[in-house]
């Protein structure tokens, strides 16, 4: 009987707990990418969004591939990702509406300071990848269908080489931070977004360097779009639009431009029209 009484007590205490953790107010769900979350942007930006619009945004941060899929299934109200070609295609196909450019940063090719493939100073990403391929120096790929991974595959496509399955080409299937760490350990090259690179390089003393940058191909555009309410009638379209409209407003753009990482670097440049 004592056991029974103890269990009842537990249940009562837990139900009290559940009341205190219950959600309230207008909240929408935003599917976004790990790179945006790991940079600390959301921690900085979401309280401002809530203050200005009254909308509380829950962020589910996954790879871009998963984010697009979650959005298509209607399991999110709004998407904040960086795969512009795919975004435009999905808008065309009717899955999403009201897509806007929000901000950008760029990708850089990093590698060991010794630069065995001799790509230093190249401004053509395709040229750099070609050299890495011809020297067969190790290259670590995200291999997770993320925005960064898609960008990388696009550059390989331009070079006309298909490195998949080659011994020097390592698909790790992990996030950007882990991928950089693996590249550092393996003395390999990799493609990374500048934000994650800046954050990790200083904190973890990576023995790597930016070796190629500045190609227009390496431009990394972030966009926001709402799930089409005609396809998914249950989504919170009005609230999603409040969020989108704030992000592209002068105030929202200023807030994004004002974000600094813990080392004082500006990671994102607002560019909504």
């Amino acid at each position: 009987m004592r056991l029974f009484r103890n269990v009842i007590w537990l249940v009562v205490m837990l139900s009290m707990l559940s009341v205190s953790t219950a959600a309230a107010g207008t909240r929408i769900r935003c599917a976004s990418t790990t790179s945006t979350q790991n940079s600390g942007l959301f921690e900085y930006l979401l309280p401002i969004v809530e203050r200005e619009t009254g909308v509380k945004v829950d962020v589910v941060a996954v790879g871009t591939g998963a984010a697009l899929e979650i959005g298509k299934r209607g399991d999110a109200d709004v998407l904040f990702v960086h795969a512009k070609d795919d975004e435009l295609r999905l808008v065309e196909e009717g899955w999403f509406v009201n897509r806007h450019d929000v901000m950008y940063n760029d990708f850089v090719i990093v590698g060991p300071p010794g630069d065995p493939a001799d790509i230093k100073g190249l401004t053509s990403a395709v040229e750099a990848f070609r050299k890495i391929n011809s020297m067969k120096t190790s290259f670590v790929s995200r291999g997770d269908n993320s925005g960064t991974n898609r960008k990388e595959l696009k550059i390989w496509e331009e070079t006309g080489v298909n490195p998949k399955g080659d011994k020097w080409y390592l698909e790790v299937g992990q996030g950007m931070g882990k991928t950089l760490r693996i590249a550092d350990e393996k003395r390999a090259y990799t493609l990374t977004d500048r934000g994650t690179w800046l954050a990790l390089k200083e904190r973890e003393k990576l023995d790597m360097k930016i070796l190629a940058e500045g190609d227009i191909m390496l431009f990394n555009q972030y966009g926001v779009m709402a799930v089409n309410p005609k396809r998914q009638p249950h989504v919170k379209y009005a609230e999603a639009m409040k969020f989108i409209n704030f992000l592209i407003s002068e105030k929202g753009q200023k807030a994004i431009g004002g974000f600094r990482d813990s080392h004082g670097n500006q990671l994102f440049h607002p560019d909504a029209e």
């Binding site: 790991n38 829950d58 962020v59 589910v60 941060a61 954050a199 990790l200 904190r203 973890e204």
Partner: peptide, 21 residues
């Protein structure tokens, strides 16, 4: 979904902090 302040628990926080370095 590891949503901050809503569905974030100990283990998912640990995984996230590892990701963040």
């Amino acid at each position: 979904g590891n949503i901050a302040g809503y569905t974030r628990v100990m283990t998912t926080t640990i995984a996230l902090e590892y990701d963040k370095g």
